[in-house]
């Protein structure tokens, strides 16, 4: 699924990186806990999170996350979008709760972006 289709399903707005809307997304990792993203997230996932600080993008960069979508109507804090632009990571924001955002992504055919099985 293309990132712009993800945005449409989540009724999300692009905060940055709209020019990367053709990016292909196949799996999703949902967490507010950045250590869990680092431990269990597979590369090239879409990260759904309610954590809007700079560390959400720093973590995304370190873990090779493809794009970040903020849920629950949260908007990124100062410096977060600037860092995302520097790192080339598209940022979306939607008003859905995490549960519904995950449900819509799953219904849309995206897979759990977890490397748990690989690591065990």
């Amino acid at each position: 699924m293309k990132l712009r289709e993800v945005a449409a399903i989540l009724e999300a707005a692009f905060i940055s990186g709209e020019e990367q809307g053709d990016m292909e997304i196949v799996s999703v990792c949902a967490s507010d806990l950045m250590s869990d993203v680092l431990a269990f997230g597979a590369p090239r996932v879409l990260l759904l999170t309610g954590l809007t600080n700079v560390q959400s993008i720093m973590t995304a960069d370190v873990a090779d996350v493809a794009a970040v979508a903020y849920v629950r109507g949260k908007r990124p804090e100062n410096g977060t979008v600037e860092l995302a632009k520097q790192k080339g990571i598209p940022v979306l924001a939607c008003d859905l709760a995490m549960f519904e955002a995950c449900g819509r992504m799953f219904e849309g055919g995206l897979l759990p972006g977890s490397s748990v099985e690989e690591s065990q």
């Binding site: 590369p43 720093m58 370190v62 873990a63």
Partner: peptide, 29 residues
Amino acid sequence: GRAGTVSTTIKSMLKQIGFPPDVIRRVAI
């Protein structure tokens, strides 16, 4: 505010050298 900048700098350096992505990701994490 700067937490993580050393790790992302190291990651960029390893990319430039040309290490495999999985090796770079493990070092970065």
